[in-house]
Design a protein around this nucleic acid. Sequence first.
DNA 1: CTGTTAGCGCTTTCAC
DNA 2: GTGAAAGCGCTAACAG
Lengths: 346, 346
Amino acid sequence: MADTLAATALTLKDIAREAGVSLATVDRVLHNRPGVRPDTVRRVREAIERNSFQPHVAAAELARGRARRFAFVMPSGPNPFMQQIEAYLGEMTAWLSARRLSAEIVATDVFDASVLASSLEALSGDYDGVAVVALDHPGVRAAINDLVDAGTKVVTLVSDVPSSRRHHYVGIDNIAAGRTAGALVGRLVGGRSGKVAVVAGSQGLRDHAERIFGFNQVMASEFPDLSVLPVLEGRDEDERSEQLLAGLLGRHADIVGLYNVGAGTQGVAKALSEAGRDKVVFVGHDVTALTRRLLLQGVMDAAISQNPGHEARAAVRVLLALARGEPILSEQDKIRIDIVMRDNLP
Amino acid sequence: MADTLAATALTLKDIAREAGVSLATVDRVLHNRPGVRPDTVRRVREAIERNSFQPHVAAAELARGRARRFAFVMPSGPNPFMQQIEAYLGEMTAWLSARRLSAEIVATDVFDASVLASSLEALSGDYDGVAVVALDHPGVRAAINDLVDAGTKVVTLVSDVPSSRRHHYVGIDNIAAGRTAGALVGRLVGGRSGKVAVVAGSQGLRDHAERIFGFNQVMASEFPDLSVLPVLEGRDEDERSEQLLAGLLGRHADIVGLYNVGAGTQGVAKALSEAGRDKVVFVGHDVTALTRRLLLQGVMDAAISQNPGHEARAAVRVLLALARGEPILSEQDKIRIDIVMRDNLP
DNA sequence: CTGTTAGCGCTTTCAC
DNA sequence: GTGAAAGCGCTAACAG
């Protein structure tokens, strides 16, 4: 009644014997290194297949000796979400060093394309892998591609540069996140009709633009009784968001819903409460100390969140798998869009 | 501008030299093995501390030689959620065998305490770790404690036995899950008043009972306009759930919400549609092929879900960390309560 | 193109 | 109580 899911005790030596070659040759084939006759390659490959041989990662890791270095290029500002990611990275120190790995945080102005690009270029050659919170810009794309060409493994984190040749993106699908926000606002408004406000940092940021796109999609197709007002651009700043929203609330008495696409949450909440519009359905992003409090108070109704801890660990695991040439466990590092309400606060 | 989060190159040998002892002695201290003079222990400990030395896991793993075996004790029935967990376990085969680990699935009747207890007892001695979907019963608790006493690492999966001495629980907080379901039903009903139906497998199952408890808590305190009808016990079977619910719908014209606590989802959906009560807010659990379809069709409004892939991998990682004596990355293996609606379907 | 060999940093006998 | 030494299964020179 026991269904064995894994068991192997074969070693490189066994494969070598079976293929009639030496250890070194098997190793070459295993790593697609040149200098082996095609026919020999085939024989070795067959022996590997036949036994579904899995090289022992621990042995490989030990024999390589060299430690692996990863760099995390993060925004230099005081963004709470990014700080959470960095904190979780910090928590992994012991885990990392027990594997002779290191993850260094490189702070930079990720919103300035040329600064970001040169930060990336400066990393070339020194790291086995780089995770970067990237701005989608031609200069950045080029810098990423250069790193890739130099043999560095690159993953984009939180914000993607799909046009680059980065190996992987660790983050959520922002269009789907926006759709989810739309569905929540629409459903939680509960049949009332009226207007919906949208506050974003900037529509120039790819993730914000994508979220708004998804949000509008759902509103238009499924909630015809709700009309979405023009997007306010609060630059993720509290005061500015507050002022803009206060003005909007003053001009429209029939606002029933609000989607806060980025940060500036403090300001948004303030504008809402000072206008006495507590009944407005308020959906935002990310679980921080602030949004947690707002959810508990009932000021915010839901937060769309990507788990920063998961994001940090996923980035490390993906970089490690890439560096080792292992396949990436498909779904393992797909970041899910979490809906967080008061009762399922993590 | 680079903040190093991890870096060590020290080896056991360095520590040995620094403490003025041999390799073997450091190893003994490291693993709390007997036969070392207290004073020597202290000296070695200090040297380890002073250098914040981290032994190289790969080397340790390689030197041990012996493979580690884990057993997963799962329900023998055709529960789709459990099957998903097993499938994800299957996907990890290569990963496991590259680490000389194995995970064997042991199917058993987890709903019969004595059968489950003897299945657990039969495992003793053969495994380094056991994950078990457990029924909370004195006999099962005793069996778990026996395994623990025999040195086997034990984690409960999906369903906990908090009174046992299991090392860890991998699963969600079911009371919070029930509260979340309550908040969703209440909010999505959108201010209407009326009755709410609850269909469960059995109130004797700990997880179902906990979910109902949380659900009622929220309904009572926050949605006074909604009254919860007595729980229907459908035994997680489609036909039975359908019949019971059909009867209930017939008797109450003002049902506006429905919480399906366990399985039997097919029957619940059928009763709803045949009665033409498509407007009823329907919240259930888990994302399966069926619930996915129901969400897309708009029949179900939300599913509370625990990610089976995450659950499978978390169980393996926790067992491995326990077996190696590593600390468990705090939040890493905490399973979150996911709210899944149509737009954030994974 | 292919094989031989010396480790990587631990664990584990087996002596002392 | 403590230490010396032989591997674990790979990788990476270096020879041929």
